[in-house]
Design a protein around this nucleic acid. Structure first.
Length: 571
RNA sequence: GUUUCCGUAGCUCAGCAGGAUAGAGCACUUCCCUCCUAAGGAAGGGGUCAGGCGUUCGAAUCGCCUCGGGAACACCA
C-alpha cells in the first residue's frame, strides 16, 4: 500500500472539514528517528491563518481518526506519525499476500509508445547507447507493471548521411560492382569492415569536400531506393541489426519494433505535401524549411530543416513521418522519446511543427525525456584514451570477466558460471547507471562498474541470494507476520520501496527505486548480522522471521525486475 | 554571444513541491567468520552544500548577481 497517500487522504479530509486548503496535507517520510512519517502543513497554514503552528497542528490532530494505526505526536508544530506495530503487521501481511506488494495500477491505462535505443546502423553500440537502452527498458517495464499498454521501438538511425558516408567508403575500399550488376565476385559485408569504414568516413567528411559531396549524393540515391546503393544498404542493415540486437539482448533489452528512419520513407511525400498545403514550408538557400520561432522568444530557435538543398531527407522530416505512422498504426495516447539532453531543441522544433500543423490528432501527447550524457573525467562525453568510443560489447565483456574472476575466487560452484557472471556483471552496469538521476550527466567510472561491493547491483543480488539460501534450508511454513521492534525497520523500508515506484513513475527516473532497493537490502543485512534466523529456537519467532524474509525477497525481486536485474540462485 | 543544465566529503553521487542534527558508496583507520554465503556487518575521521545578497519562523532546496564547468544553437542525427 501507498502509506503516504493513505495518510494524506486522512489529513486532507480533516483539512477540508476545517475549511483549509488540502494542499497542506502533504506527508513525507521522516529522515530522522523521531517518527516514520511527518506532516509539516501547519507551518504553511500558520502563515495564511495567522494562528500558531502548534495550535493548528493540535486542531488537525484532534480531528484525525486513525483507529490506532499511528501514534501521533506534535513537536513545535511538526506532526509526527509512528505506524503502530499492529498496523505495520497488517500492512506486511497484505503485501505478502499480493504478488505486487499491493502497488496500485494507474487509474486509466493508456497506450504508450516508447522510442528509445536510437542505435545507428553501421556502427556498433558504444557506452553512450547503454544509458538510453537501460533507462528506456526500465521505464518500459515500470509502465507495464503499472498497467499501461506499451509498445517500444528502437528507431534505428538508418537513413541519413551516415549511410551515404559508409557506402561511399565501402565503394572506395572494395569493389562493390556486384551490387550494381557487374560480373565481379560479391563482397560480403562484415561488421569489421563497417568498423573501419565508419570512423574513416566521418573523418573524410570533414576533410574532403569531394567525398562529402559524393556521400550526400549517395544518401539521396539511397532514399530514392536506387538499385545498387539500396542493395548495399540492405546488406549492411542485415549485418548490423543482428549485432546490435545481440548487444541489446546482453543487457536484457528488447524492443517490440525494429523500425527505423527508413521505415517511413514512403510517408515522406505525404508529410511534405500536407505541410506545404498548410503553407508552412519555405525555401531557404535551396533547402525546404519550416520556421518554428515564436514571437517574443528569447532563446535561439532555428528553423526546422526538412529537405537538404539536394532534396535529401533530413532527420526532422522522418521524425514527423514516424509520428504520423505511429498515430495511424498504434493510436498512442502518448509517445515518449528517451534520448540524451543534446536533442532537446530538435524535439522542441519537431513537436511544434506537429502541433501547429495538426498532422496528427492533437490528443496525442508528445514527451521528450532527456537523460544526461555519460561523461569522462573531463566532463565531456566519454571517449577512450585514444579518442575513440568505448564499445558496449567490450564493456560487457570486461564486467563479465571481472564477475567470473570473483566467482572463481569465492569458489562458487554452479554449472553455468558464464551465465552467472554475465548476470552479475550486467547488474553492476544497470545499477551503476540507473542509480544516477536520469536528467543529469554522470561520470563514466570504469572502476565503479567493476567493483561489486557497496552500493551496487551485485549487492542487491547478494542480499537476495542469502535470503533464498536461508529459506531453502529452513522449515518455512506460511503464516501471518507479526512486526515488533526487531523487524519494523525492514517493513518501513518496504513501504519506502513502494513509494519509490510512485516517484519513479512521476519523474521517469529509476534512481528512487534503486536507492530504496539498496536501503532495504542494507537494513536487512543489518538484521541478518544481528539475528541468527535458522538457529532461532522458538518456533513461532523463527517462522515469523522466515515469513518476513519471504516478503523481503519478494520486494527485492520485484524492484530488481523493474530495473532489469535478475536474481541468481547462488553467487 | 543567446539559451539551457550543473557546482554538496579526497573521488562518485543522493537529498532540492523549504523543515528538525546535511546523507550514502568508494578510499582511509579500527573491530566482527567454531554459528543461516564476509560480494556482508559495526564503529570512526572527513563539509563555510562554489561565493555573495535577498525572501522566510526556517534555505543545500526558492529569487537575483558573480565566478567556474558541460551542452545546444541551418543542410549531422
Amino acid at each position: 500500500m501507498d502509506i503516504k497517500k493513505y495518510l494524506r487522504k486522512k489529513i486532507e479530509y480533516v483539512l477540508q472539514t476545517l475549511g483549509y486548503d488540502i494542499k497542506y496535507a502533504a506527508v513525507a517520510f521522516c529522515n530522522n528517528d523521531l517518527a516514520d512519517l511527518q506532516c509539516n502543513g501547519a507551518f504553511a497554514l500558520a502563515k495564511i491563518t495567522h494562528k500558531s503552528p502548534i495550535v493548528l497542528a493540535e486542531e488537525i490532530v484532534s480531528n484525525l481518526h486513525l483507529d490506532g494505526q499511528f501514534e501521533i505526536s506534535i513537536v513545535n508544530g511538526f506532526i509526527n506519525f509512528k505506524i503502530t506495530d499492529q498496523f505495520l503487521s497488517k500492512i506486511a501481511n497484505d503485501c505478502a499476500k499480493s504478488d505486487r506488494l499491493n502497488i496500485a495500477k494507474v487509474d486509466k491505462p493508456m497506450n504508450l509508445f516508447i522510442d528509445y535505443g536510437g542505435a545507428n546502423v553501421a556502427k556498433p553500440l558504444h557506452v553512450g547507447h547503454m544509458r538510453s537502452a537501460i533507462v528506456g527498458e526500465a521505464i518500459k517495464k515500470l509502465n507495464i507493471f503499472l498497467g499501461n499498454n506499451v509498445t517500444s521501438d528502437v528507431h534505428l538511425g538508418d537513413w541519413g548521411l551516415q549511410m551515404g558516408l559508409v557506402i561511399a567508403q565501402l565503394m572506395d575500399d572494395y569493389d562493390m560492382g556486384y551490387y550494381f550488376g557487374k560480373p565481379v565476385p560479391k563482397v560480403e559485408i562484415t561488421m569489421s569492415m563497417l568498423d573501419v569504414a565508419y570512423p574513416k568516413a566521418s573523418l573524410r567528411k570533414k576533410e574532403e569536400p569531394e567525398f562529402y559531396e559524393r556521400a550526400s549524393e549517395i544518401t539521396l540515391k539511397l532514399q530514392q531506393k536506387v538499385a545498387g546503393y539500396y542493395d548495399i544498404w540492405q546488406e549492411m542493415n542485415k549485418v548490423c541489426i543482428a549485432m546490435v540486437k545481440a548487444s541489446y539482448l546482453a543487457l536484457g533489452v528488447t524492443f517490440d519494433l525494429w523500425n527505423g528512419e527508413s521505415s517511413v520513407n514512403d510517408l515522406v511525400p505525404y508529410v511534405l505535401d500536407y505541410l506545404e498545403k498548410k503553407h508552412m514550408v519555405k525555401v531557404s538557400e535551396g533547402a525546404r524549411i519550416i520556421e518554428v520561432a515564436e514571437e517574443g522568444e528569447t532563446q535561439p530557435m532555428p528553423p526546422l530543416l526538412l529537405l537538404k538543398s539536394n532534396g535529401a531527407q533530413m532527420y526532422p522530416i522522418t521524425e514527423i513521418a514516424t509520428i504520423v505512422d505511429r498515430a495511424k498504426v498504434y493510436h498512442p495516447d502518448e509517445i515518449l522519446y528517451i534520448t540524451d539532453n543534446r536533442q532537446t531543441l530538435h524535439f522542441q522544433q519537431v513537436f511544434r511543427v506537429v502541433t501547429k500543423s495538426g498532422i496528427v490528432d492533437d490528443s496525442i501527447k508528445l514527451k521528450h525525456i532527456t537523460f544526461g550524457t555519460v561523461n569522462g573525467k573531463d566532463g565531456k562525453p566519454f571517449k577512450t584514451r585514444d579518442g575513440g568510443t568505448f564499445k558496449l560489447d567490450d564493456l560487457i565483456a570486461m564486467v563479465t570477466d571481472k564477475a567470473l574472476e570473483k566467482l572463481r575466487e569465492n569458489k562458487v560452484d554452479v554449472p553455468n558460471l558464464t551465465e552467472l557472471s554475465k548476470m552479475i556483471g550486467i547488474s553492476a552496469l544497470i545499477f551503476g547507471d540507473l542509480s544516477n538521476v536520469i536528467s543529469r550527466d554522470y561520470v563514466f567510472d570504469l572502476d565503479k562498474f567493476m567493483t561489486f561491493e557497496g552500493k551496487t547491483g551485485p549487492y542487491l543480488q547478494y542480499t537476495a541470494v542469502r535470503i533464498k539460501s536461508i529459506l531453502n534450508k529452513s522449515d518455512y511454513v506460511p503464516m501471518d507476520i507479526t512486526i515488533n521492534s526487531d523487524t519494523r525497520d525492514i517493513v518501513i523500508q518496504i513501504l519506502k520501496l513502494i513509494d519509490s515506484f510512485d516517484q519513479a513513475y512521476k519523474e521517469n527516473s529509476l534512481h528512487s527505486i534503486c536507492l530504496a532497493l539498496y536501503e532495504l537490502c542494507s537494513t536487512f543485512s543489518n538484521f541478518y548480522n544481528n539475528v541468527k534466523i535458522l538457529s532461532t529456537e522458538d518456533y513461532i519467532t523463527r517462522q515469523n522471521y522466515l515469513n518476513l524474509l519471504k516478503l523481503v525477497y519478494k520486494a527485492i525481486d520485484l524492484g530488481c525486475g523493474i530495473i532489469g536485474i535478475k536474481i541468481p540462485e547462488k553467487m
